[in-house]
Amino acid sequence: MFFKNINFSASNAIKDIQGVIKNSSWGGNRPIIIITGGLGEGKSTYLENLINFLGSVKGLTFRRFVAKGIGLPPLCEGYSLKVLPHGNEQMLCRRVGPCGLPSKSFEFNQEVVKELTKELIAIKSDDILIIDEVGLTKTQNILILTVRRENLMHVAEWWKLNDAYVFDINKASVNDTAHSIKSLVLSYLASGC
């Protein structure tokens, strides 16, 4: 789904998610791609399979930030963070409150945040940034994010992701998603932006 030019409300956008990009050519802004699904439905596994497919495309390089929940869902006790391909796993945050905005639900390890900032600064402009269950960052890189379906509209509204392409893991195969993303990303990179 392409969020651009719709009446932006949670109920409107969620019912319109088709799971595929209707127009997979680049339209001017850096691509922001969201992989969505419910709690425990397999977003991270879907993303892993997607990366395996896209990793074979010549000229695409990725930096991946993966947060792993600690404790049992639905309210994890915290998250550890691993930066791939080379990083060590570190404790990113611990829960201090019920679900809500991330800045109010968790207390973040400031040393890990400083290290994360250094990692983000070191990212090349043509790297594709993959963020799995981690809050967004200000970057000009192509982004591939995972967001729980129930949080999708909050994330899109909070970060003003009006141009995001959304793939629901229950409505689009990894193969179809990968081909659409490949077309979109290669079109964007060919534009020289």
Rank of each mutant, 00 (worst) to 15 (best):
R64W: 05
L161P: 12
E77G: 01
N162A: 07
I181V: 15
I34L: 12
E150N: 14
N23T: 08
L186C: 12
V57F: 09
M153L: 04
I21H: 01
I14A: 10
R94V: 08
F106P: 02
F106I: 06
I121H: 05
A13T: 11
I128E: 06
L81Y: 06
P102R: 02
N12I: 06
I17W: 04
R95D: 07
G69D: 04
G27R: 12
Q90F: 06
M153K: 04
D127A: 11
D127C: 09
N109A: 07
Q90I: 04
D126H: 14
N12Y: 02
E133F: 03
S80R: 11
I128V: 13
I142M: 11
I70S: 05
A10K: 15
I123Y: 00
P102F: 08
D16Y: 00
F62E: 00
H179A: 13
E150T: 09
L143V: 07
L101H: 14
E119V: 01
K124S: 14
V147P: 08
I121M: 03
Q110I: 13
M153D: 12
R63K: 15
R95A: 00
N52H: 10
K15W: 00
V147I: 15
E107W: 05
L101Q: 13
I144D: 02
R95H: 07
S187M: 05
E119K: 03
L101D: 13
F65W: 06
S11F: 07
L129D: 04
I14P: 02
V174Q: 10
L143Y: 00
N141G: 07
L92S: 06
S44R: 12
A172K: 08
F106A: 01
V113Q: 08
A172G: 08
K58W: 00
V66P: 00
D16H: 13
T139S: 15
S125Y: 04
C76D: 10
T36L: 08
L101F: 07
V112D: 10
A67L: 05
G37S: 13
L84M: 14
E41A: 14
S173K: 09
V96N: 03
E111W: 03
K124R: 15
I35H: 13
Y188V: 03
L60H: 03
I34F: 12
Y46S: 09
L189A: 02
N88P: 00
L152H: 09
N23C: 03
D132P: 09
H154S: 13
N151M: 11
G38A: 11
I70N: 07
